[in-house]
Nucleic acid binder design. Structure first.
Lengths: 253, 253
DNA sequence: TTGGTGGTCTTGTACCAACAACTTGATGCC
DNA sequence: GGCATCAAGTTGTTGGTACAAGACCACCAA
């Protein structure tokens, strides 16, 4: 049978069309693999290849023992990164808790799990903080941001150890202060450099965030500098693509 | 055999470890499926499941008839979006050709394929441009940005038709002007709103860009406003994750 | 030298079978 | 009623086979 496109491609195309036209609504259960076998007169393997294709595109999601379902897209959280902590319009909250207040406004319950460690910096972190990777130490605050019990993002902050030694930043608690936590200990960030990359999550990230298959992440790395251009902090945020929008406002002064 | 983790998980973990430890270098060919069958004493099906896992993580890439290879990451192009076209430091070029000049600086050859059409706007575009989706028309400039024959990004610009009627923007050519093309016809953008989302590419994007499997894309939507807060343009750029870094500088005035 | 031709190697597609693991709802016991 | 148990249904895992399709190389012929 000299067909050009493989059968499982055409089955996937057919199902994708049904999803895009709305004949299969978000959250709705698809036919079972066995039913699809009969409908298309193919083997179960071929059906599974087609379903895998849709899974990889993020269109459906399968659960063992339950069935396959059209994936419903979450209403994404919009995240405005174009404001300095020190002049945040969001009622005097730090950037770390801009998040908390934005979430709270939408009637949901934010929570953060914080873990603090002292570590030798990785090559990338050392470069961003202009530290010697052999001798310097960094204080690392690893946060898991949770909304209504569901993990939403990972946010890890790295500080040069000598700058924050003995301050509240070393407490494994959810610290917040008006104007930003760094400002509260006398470190004023006047400039950020943000770099955003896109990739598939690592296994560890995928587990911590409970990500469904085929969910890419944005990696947002923000380096904060004081007015002498000394780097004070690197914050790396892992934002799952299915639940976040990153926003910037760029304007002439 | 009451094992907790499936065999193909463990095989994938093993191979992933080899890649991460550098025992398998980027670009290097993996053992063939048949050899892996013998080495792990499993069926080809199981080997393929393990390889698929690594493919989905973006770690390897397979070619029919050639073999499987450790994926080498490209040196990503850094893309600075925090500058207005009108005050670009990059030798008086438009944003659209900030790209061209950055690429040219690194000794590679940039090229753009441009297609211009007039269309009724989608709901999203109409909302961004504050147009009536029933009656309004938009001029759409679809560009494929190519570096050394390889497609690198898609950049589609949408203009309200009444604003650009009869101007150079309606020519299906690679137009450029000092200070930006819009400025050259009297439309001055003083503010942008950028929204970045992350998702898997659609089939069409994947084909146009020749993306390997498991390559997510960043969708960068920039809406430009004049000083009366009237939207002048929406530009949607599709940036494959394996070859782009998005950068912003955020500073106090 | 050049070009085509064919054979071999490798991954891709498609089929079949069996059991495991998990979910869900029904059943029945206390 | 409440709770444990069971059975049926569904996807997950693993084994097998066969042929197709693309890549690559060696060989031969012009």
């Amino acid at each position: 049978m000299g067909e050009q496109t493989p059968r499982y491609h055409r089955i996937a195309d057919d199902l994708r069309g049904q999803i895009e036209r709305g004949e299969l609504a978000p959250g709705q259960q698809l036919l079972t693999e066995f039913e699809l076998m009969e409908q298309y007169a193919v083997s179960r393997n071929t059906v599974r290849l087609a379903l895998r294709r849709l899974t990889d595109e993020g269109l459906i999601i399968a659960g063992q023992g339950r069935g396959s379902f059209v994936r419903k897209q979450l209403t994404p959280a919009v995240w405005d990164w174009s404001v300095l902590e020190s002049r945040s319009r969001h009622r005097s909250d730090a950037n770390g808790d801009q998040w908390a207040s934005v979430v709270a406004e939408s009637g949901r319950e934010p929570r953060q799990e914080v873990k603090v460690t002292i570590r030798r910096p990785s090559a990338e972190i050392a470069r961003q903080l202009q530290l010697d990777p052999e001798t310097a130490l960094t204080v690392v605050r690893e946060r898991v941001r949770i909304v209504d019990q569901d993990p939403y993002a990972l946010a890890d902050s790295y500080f040069p150890e000598e700058l924050v030694r003995g301050t509240a930043l070393m407490l494994p608690e959810d610290v917040a202060a008006p104007g930003g936590v760094l400002a509260s200990i006398g470190l004023i960030q006047v400039r950020y450099q943000d770099e955003i990359t896109v990739r598939m999550p690592t296994r560890g990230e995928s587990e911590k965030l409970g990500l469904p298959a085929a969910t890419p992440v944005a990696v947002h790395m923000r380096t904060g500098y004081d007015k002498g251009d000394r780097p004070l902090r690197v914050m790396i945020t892992i934002l799952p693509g299915d639940r976040h929008v990153i926003r910037y406002d760029v304007s002439a002064e």
